[in-house]
Amino acid sequence: MNGQIQEKILNIFERQKGFARTKDFLNEGINHYYIRRLEYEGEIIRIKQGLYRHAKYEGNQYDEIVEISKVIPKGVICLLSALAYYELTTYNPWEHQVAIYRGAKKPSLPDYPPIKIIYFSETQYQYGIDEVEIEGNNVKIYDREKTICDIIRYREKIGIDIMKEGLRNYLQRPEKNITKLVDYAEKLRIKTVLLKYLEVLL
């Protein structure tokens, strides 16, 4: 392959922290032939139609979360995935849970990594969205307090034991913010349930 084209392709990935879309290549005058060839040779990996990751950027334990943020730009890492990211559970979720607004169009999902879409109401969706930087990429994730509120709301689905473990671990963290937690719980209408568990654990 033409060395100039290879350099151009690498520059695209470097500018975009390891990811590129088909239109990024086409805008630089790189046609579909080169994209297919690089994919065949294993230099680039197709995440889903029109979205690629450069093979040299593979290896970080949070790679999949970054990929998900590219696949679902308006999605927010939530529930057990957020709990695991903050190391508030020993449970290792087998799929990534991502929240989107209930009225939004369902995103097109790749075969891998496994993603579970959780539809939140407008109030549920908008509170507590934070951004973390992973390998130079910004990823939307609910903050710790919102994550605790969510696992309490969905305790029957995720399991009472996991919910209690998450809350207990959160309460032991120096960065906990009980005032913020109770404020979120009030806005999300789960304050009574939260206080019941806090009484037991505090």
Results as ranks from 00 to 15, higher is better:
Leu109Pro: 01
His54Tyr: 12
Gln49Ser: 14
Asp24Arg: 02
Thr179Asn: 13
Glu135Arg: 11
Ile162Glu: 04
Leu26Met: 11
Lys116Glu: 10
Asn138Ile: 08
Asn137Thr: 13
Ser81Lys: 06
Leu195Val: 03
Ile141Leu: 04
Leu194Ala: 10
Val182Arg: 13
His96Leu: 12
Asp143Phe: 02
Tyr86Pro: 01
Leu80Tyr: 01
Arg144Ala: 12
Glu14Ile: 10
Glu64Gly: 02
Ala55Trp: 07
Thr192Glu: 15
Asp63Trp: 10
Glu14Leu: 13
Arg153Ala: 07
Asn27Ser: 13
Val66Cys: 05
Leu188Asn: 01
Val71Tyr: 10
Ile190Gly: 00
Lys187Trp: 00
Tyr197Asn: 11
Ile5Cys: 08
Phe120Tyr: 15
Ala104Gln: 09
Lys140Phe: 06
Arg21Met: 07
Leu10Tyr: 13
Lys56Thr: 08
Tyr101Cys: 05
Leu167His: 04
Glu14Pro: 00
Glu7Thr: 10
Glu156Asn: 14
Phe19Leu: 05
Gly103Asn: 12
Lys105Trp: 04
Val71Asp: 03
Asn138Arg: 15
Pro73His: 10
Ile115Phe: 07
Ile65Leu: 15
Phe19Trp: 09
Val76Ala: 00
Gln124Lys: 11
Tyr57Ala: 07
Lys74Phe: 08
Asn92Thr: 14
Thr123Cys: 01
His32Met: 14
His54Asn: 12
Ile5Lys: 14
Asp150Arg: 02
Trp94Tyr: 14
Leu38Ile: 03
Leu109Asn: 03
Glu58Lys: 15
Tyr57Gly: 07
Ala99Gly: 10
Glu14Val: 06
Arg153Trp: 11
Gly3Cys: 09
Glu87Val: 10
Tyr119Trp: 14
Glu175Ser: 09
Arg168Asn: 09
Leu38Ser: 10
Ile30Gln: 12
Leu88Tyr: 14
Pro110Asn: 05
Ile45Tyr: 13
Gln126Asn: 13
Phe25Gln: 09
Lys187Gln: 06
Val200Ala: 06
Tyr125Asn: 03
Leu188Val: 01
Glu67Ile: 11
Ile72Glu: 07
Val71Trp: 10
Glu131Tyr: 14
Glu87Ala: 12
Phe13Asn: 04
Lys74Asp: 14
Thr147Glu: 00
Ala82Glu: 03
Tyr101Lys: 15
Arg46Ile: 01
Ser69Glu: 03
Lys176Arg: 15
Gln97Asp: 03
Glu165Met: 10
His96Glu: 01
Glu7Gly: 05
Tyr57Phe: 15
His96Tyr: 15
Glu95Ser: 09
Glu165Asn: 06
Gln124Thr: 06
Leu10His: 11
Arg53Trp: 03
Lys146Gly: 00
His96Lys: 11
Arg15Trp: 05
Gln49Leu: 12
Gly136Ser: 07
Val200Trp: 08
Lys180Phe: 03
His96Ile: 15
Ile118Ala: 11
Val139His: 11
Arg46Asn: 02
Leu181Asn: 06
Leu202Tyr: 15
Val193Met: 10
Glu28Leu: 09
Gln61Val: 09
Ile118Thr: 13
Glu87Trp: 08
Ile118Gly: 04
Ser69Ile: 00
Leu181Cys: 04
Glu39Cys: 08
Tyr52Lys: 04
Glu186Ala: 08
Leu109Lys: 07
Lys56Ala: 05
Gly50Arg: 04
Leu195Gly: 08
Glu41Gly: 04
Lys8Val: 04
Gly159Leu: 05
Lys157Arg: 15
Ala82Pro: 08
Tyr85Phe: 15
Ser121Arg: 13
Ile30Asn: 13
Gln124Phe: 05
Gly166Met: 06
Asp24Trp: 05
Glu165Phe: 07
Tyr52Gly: 04
Ile65Ala: 12
Phe120Gly: 03
Arg15Thr: 05
Gly159Glu: 01
